[in-house]
């Protein structure tokens, strides 16, 4: 398993009851879903607490804008709540929920792409500097900016797979049901996405380095 570069700790300031439920490893997602369906609002609050950071970061890495990621996350939870009675308890909750998030993010991404091409300015406007100071930090920030620029150039189907696999560390078998495609399709998109990413990235580096 790859490292997870996103912070998925519980948010602070939760009511004690909700925090206890969200943090309890003995309480499964399915139990929280069942509690919500039975009218326990704390159970749903615990579900939100468990997944809000992860879903926010996935949406952010696909969309590249904080506001969009926040809106998508919020909408995903509302849709989740409305369809909890259709949840199949035999299946993984997070796969189901991630599918909602990804569908919303991809829809928004396509709308944005049709309205205007995602540019370097958009991504740089969302992503700040890297921590640290001095020349190294500046170079690192510049390099990170290039990475975001390249990611913004990728087609949505490649970007989503790269985000889920290389940033969030999910396996191809986990990604397939989230994107509702076959395992072979995920592998093909990953293969193609990594190649395209490398081509763009090397081209950018060649242009910027003397």
């Amino acid at each position: 398993m790859l490292k997870r570069p996103v912070d998925d700790r519980l948010p602070r300031g939760l009511p004690a009851q909700v925090e206890r439920m969200a943090a309890a490893s003995g309480v499964s997602d399915a139990e929280l879903v069942r509690g919500t369906v039975e009218g326990d609002t704390d159970a749903f609050a615990a579900l939100v607490a468990r997944y809000q950071k992860r879903s926010f970061w996935v949406a952010f890495h696909v969309l590249g804008r904080v506001e969009d990621a926040r809106d998508v996350t919020q909408e995903a939870f509302v849709r989740l709540f409305r369809s909890l009675d259709k949840y199949d308890y035999a299946r993984s909750f997070y796969t189901w929920f991630y599918r909602i998030v990804m569908n919303l993010a991809i829809d928004l991404l396509r709308k944005q792409k049709s309205a205007r091409a995602t540019s370097l300015d958009d991504l740089n406007g969302s992503v700040g500097d890297t921590p640290g100071d001095g020349t190294d930090a500046v170079e690192l920030a510049e390099q990170n900016g290039q990475v975001w620029q390249v990611l913004g150039k990728l087609d949505a189907k490649f970007r989503t797979v790269l985000v889920l696999r290389d940033i969030h560390g999910m396996s191809c078998r986990e990604i397939a049901p989230i994107l509702k495609v076959t395992h072979a399709t995920v592998r093909w998109r990953l293969h193609r996405g990594r190649r395209v990413f490398r081509e763009h990235w090397e081209r950018l580096q060649g242009r910027t380095t003397p």
């Binding site: 570069p5 700040g128 890297t130 390099q143 990475v147 975001w148 990413f197 990235w201």
Partner: peptide, 15 residues
């Protein structure tokens, strides 16, 4: 190239 992606995301602070 593959590591650059994960490293950049991990190292970036989003305002």
């Amino acid at each position: 190239a593959k590591n650059a992606l994960a490293d950049a995301v991990a190292a970036t602070v989003v305002p």
